[in-house]
Design a protein around this nucleic acid. Structure first.
Length: 869
DNA sequence: AAAAATCGG
DNA sequence: GGGTCCGATTTTT
């Protein structure tokens, strides 16, 4: 939002890390800075929030102190050496300086508030803010005179400015306006980069070139004299703009109430200069310079939306961003593309103005006597010794006025998350429920971008505003609500248990997914799919379409069920009713849907090939992933194997265990059945071998219990061991099996069950209920999983593995199996030495031994190998 | 890899 | 009358 970007006036900064000068002179209305601070402090003091702010401040101070100590130890010799190195680097940077691009940063003025004022005349000339009583996203300039800013809670804003009108946000409307603006921007740079609804970067270098030979009429625009511009007096462009901007002009803002301001004076000095756009009657012609282009853009934006924008023009994004702030609102500023102009601009620029330098960095640098970019440059050697490489590189870039000169096609996203603040939630059932809702939400977002990832992070903020995050990485990518929840639930559970007997008193919960496969991984996947498609090319399109409709069908109900959220329920005090059955249905459909396009593809392949072969015939195929021959009873079984191999590194390990070991192919097909990802249709086969795996698994569990969890750990606090037994039975099956959810006669179902049931069951062996023909048995905990979803089942296995059984096992069994490869070090193909990870971990944060396929191909296998023998 | 801190909007 | 955000990335451990 606009107001947060005015860093020096940022509300949060004012609270504790007081910085910068609020040059807010007391106008006829409004408050001076002292008064503002006093009111804020009175409203804040003594609150839990404030307590946490103090705590955070102390931490920052500690950090600074550490830094100063480090600084004290630096010898002048070290410094000289650093100086040479840094200067060499600076030289290189200087040589690569590129002034040939013209970058523009466009920034809508007080965007949300401006839209609201435009659409509701009553709000004009009044202090308004968009947001809620608990949080504001932006305020208009009138309200800012009272110290009302973005990221300020509404109730404090009200104290600062009792007349303040708080308008709830209309994001759809803002999006629509934003789209209108973007349509204009695209004319100047089709590849422009939108940073948010109200901000964008453009590279107009090419447009400028083309524009040089444009005839005048191509740069001519007619002035629309709409109703909304009633005060307009044709003939002077500044007037036309003034109606709206009167209320937002800084001149007015500082010195006089908006309605008293005389019209007609040019409000933006640098807007109207020598080479004015020609104004002929009702049209206006813009020139060919960058400045003119940006005036044109802003003119068009205002004509189209009745909203004003500010802009910065510079040779790179970093500078353009700072520039757009300089003459805000409704102004623009250019840094000419020569080194001297850049350096002049930079010279006295406070580093805080630069994007990426926040209040903490500012404070740290301030402790070193650095406030402006010049000082930043002067201290470059010292900084290189006190900060990480990336940090001081960044600093050096800034102090030289460098920044990116091309608009990087938005780099691949690294994570995606949802989080929510609510009034205190302490009941575990509600917390699990919340957790699930967030997972569903996240899954939907993920689906929109088709993302899958391996690391799930849960974020918890308690009523004292203390934030905790807990993460777990699994071996294969996940994306559905069920998969994510299965893991998030465990993370949440360990936190709840850790606090026992006290409840977690939460005010916020969040779920995040990261570790997305990188390009290489994806290419690999694609090429494999391509490989399989080679046999039947028409399949691809069919599969894609099929999956699309698939999604559409099943997503809808989920979305609807989702709308009525936990919060709504809380509010209406209604406990779970029929609505939940609806939810379960939706969720379960979703879980059935879990087919990836790949699976769809395989189905298709099956249909196609069924004509030529009987599925009962045993055939030999070569798996395109592990390159082992697979003697499968059916093509489908084979496909399941391939799927498993594809599914990730859990599989890659397992396939190495099962398929890539030195076993004969007959052995392979047997072992395949114990594979966590084995096919449902292999069930019969599976049962014949079940005994085997049962013995080994039981063996393992016992080993863990006797050796690592002495009986006394059974007490209330010692829950770590409880987990290893308990997780498995209560995992996905219980919470998501549609039969159980919907046939449950009691009206309390689903999540509440999840929490309470699993806790009841904690120390009991799992009791088999109705054994459906879709039962899968987890090879780790050896307990039957009542899920028909293979991916979900795999997630369960992952969680089981993560719980630490393996870790314990490894320690003991690794020695027993005196294979030559069992050493504390191993070497991969590239000859690099690798550590074997045997770090003991606290439960709940186990490192997956699988890790990445590329870097640790060896170690994991051994463990599993031993484990399953 | 996990957890915490930082940032910007 | 109590009520202080959200999503992403970077840095630290």
């Amino acid at each position: 939002m606009d107001s947060t970007k005015e860093k020096n006036g940022n509300y949060k900064d004012d609270l504790l890390l007081r910085v910068g000068l609020n040059d807010n002179k007391a106008g006829m209305e409004g408050l001076d800075k002292e008064k503002i601070n006093k009111i804020i402090m009175e409203a804040t003091k003594g609150s839990r929030f404030y307590g946490n702010e103090l705590k955070k401040e102390k931490q920052v101070n500690q950090r600074i102190e550490n830094m100063m100590q480090q600084k004290a130890q630096i010898t002048s010799q070290q410094l000289r050496k650093a100086q040479l190195q840094v200067d060499r680097f600076a030289m290189e940077l200087e040589q690569s300086r590129d002034l040939s691009n013209t970058i523009v940063h466009i920034d809508m003025d007080a965007f949300y508030a401006a839209v609201e004022m435009r659409d509701n005349p009553e709000l004009k000339d009044k202090p308004i803010a968009v947001g809620s009583m608990s949080m504001l996203s932006t305020s208009n300039y009138y309200a800012r005179r009272f110290g009302v800013r973005a990221a300020m809670p509404g109730f404090i804003a009200k104290r600062l400015c009792p007349q303040l009108i708080i308008v709830p946000p209309n994001f759809d409307k803002y999006r629509a306006v934003s789209t209108e603006v973007k349509e204009i921007l695209a004319d100047y740079d089709p590849n422009f980069m939108a940073m948010s609804l109200d901000e964008a970067y453009l590279n107009i270098t090419q447009h400028l070139q083309e524009r040089q030979n444009w005839p005048e009429d191509k740069r001519k625009y007619f002035i629309k004299t709409g109703n909304s511009l009633e005060n307009e007096k044709p003939g002077k462009e500044a007037h036309k703009l003034s109606e709206h901007e009167r209320s937002t002009s800084p001149l007015l803002f500082d010195d006089s109430p908006p309605d008293l301001h005389p019209q007609g004076i040019p409000l933006q000095v640098n807007f109207e200069e020598q080479n004015n756009p020609q104004i002929l009657q009702n049209s206006i012609v813009f020139g060919t310079s960058a400045e003119e282009v940006v005036k044109e853009i802003r003119f068009r934006i205002e004509q189209k939306t009745t909203l004003t924008a500010s802009a910065g023009i510079a040779p790179n994004t970093m500078l353009a961003k700072v520039c757009s702030d300089k003459n805000k609102p409704n102004g623009q500023y250019q840094i000419l593309p020569n080194r001297q102009a850049v350096m002049d601009f930079i010279k006295n620029l406070p580093i805080r103005k630069v994007s990426g330098i926040g209040k903490v960095t500012e404070k740290m640098l301030k402790a070193l006597g650095i406030i402006t970019c010049t000082e930043l440059y002067q201290q470059r050697a010292l900084l290189s010794l006190l900060f990480s490489e990336t940090s001081w590189h960044h600093f050096l870039h800034i102090s030289l006025g460098l920044g990116s000169t091309h608009l990087a096609r938005d780099g691949e996203r690294k994570s995606m998350s949802v989080e929510r603040t609510f009034s205190e939630v302490s009941k575990p059932e509600e917390q699990y429920s919340l957790c699930q809702e967030l997972c569903s939400e996240l899954a939907q977002d993920l689906q929109k971008e088709g993302l899958k990832g391996r690391t799930i992070t849960i974020k918890l903020k308690n009523v004292n505003f203390e934030v905790k995050t807990r993460a777990s990485t699994v071996s294969s990518v996940v994306s559905t609500a069920e998969e994510i929840f299965a893991i998030a639930k465990e993370l949440l559970r360990t936190e709840i248990d850790a606090e026992f007997p006290h409840p977690l008193r939460l005010r916020l919960m969040g779920i995040r997914l990261s570790s997305f496969p990188n390009e290489e991984d994806k290419k690999q996947q694609r090429s494999i799919i391509g490989f399989l498609q080679a046999g039947n090319q028409t399949l691809s399109a069919a599969g894609y379409i099929l999956e699309k409709t698939d999604k559409d069908q099943f997503l809808k109900p989920l979305e609807i069920s989702h709308k009525k959220s936990f919060f709504d329920k809380k509010r209406s005090e209604r406990k779970w009713s029929h609505q939940d059955t609806f939810k379960c249905e939706a969720v379960d459909k979703q879980s059935l849907r879990t087919s990836h396009s790949f699976q769809v593809l395989k189905k298709k392949m099956n249909e196609n090939s069924e004509t030529s072969e009987n599925s009962n015939n045993s055939q030999i195929f070569t798996c395109p992933i592990c390159f082992r021959e697979q003697r499968s009873i059916s093509l489908e079984a084979f496909n399941k194997h391939v799927d498993a191999c594809l599914d990730g590194s859990l599989i890659s390990e397992n396939s190495s265990v099962f398929s890539c070991s030195h076993a004969s192919s007959t052995e392979i097909s047997k072992k395949e059945n114990v594979h966590p990802s084995f096919s449902l249709h292999e069930k019969q086969d599976y049962e014949t071998h079940q005994k085997n795996s049962e013995i080994s698994s039981v063996d393992c569990v016992e080993l863990v219990e006797t050796e690592d969890n002495p009986p006394e750990a059974e007490s209330v606090g010692g829950l770590s061991e409880k987990h290893s037994k308990e997780e498995c039975p209560s995992l996905p099956s219980r919470s998501f099996n549609i039969a159980e959810c919907c046939h449950n006669s009691s009206s309390t179902v689903s999540l509440e069950d999840t929490g309470s049931l699993s806790q009841q069951e904690s120390s009991q062996p799992y009791l088999h209920e109705v054994i459906t023909d879709q039962a899968l048995v987890c090879p780790v905990c050896n307990l039957e999983q009542k899920t028909s979803d293979l991916t979900l089942f795999n997630v369960h296995v992952d969680v089981c593995l993560n719980k630490g059984i393996i870790q314990e096992l490894r320690k003991d069994k690794v020695n027993l199996a005196n294979q030559p490869r069992e050493s504390t070090q191993s070497t991969d193909n590239s000859g690099r030495v690798q550590k074997t990870a045997t770090k003991p971990k606290r439960p709940g944060s186990m490192t997956k031994y699988s890790a990445s396929k590329k870097t640790k191909p060896n170690n994991p296998r051994h463990t599993l190998d031993v484990f399953f023998k």
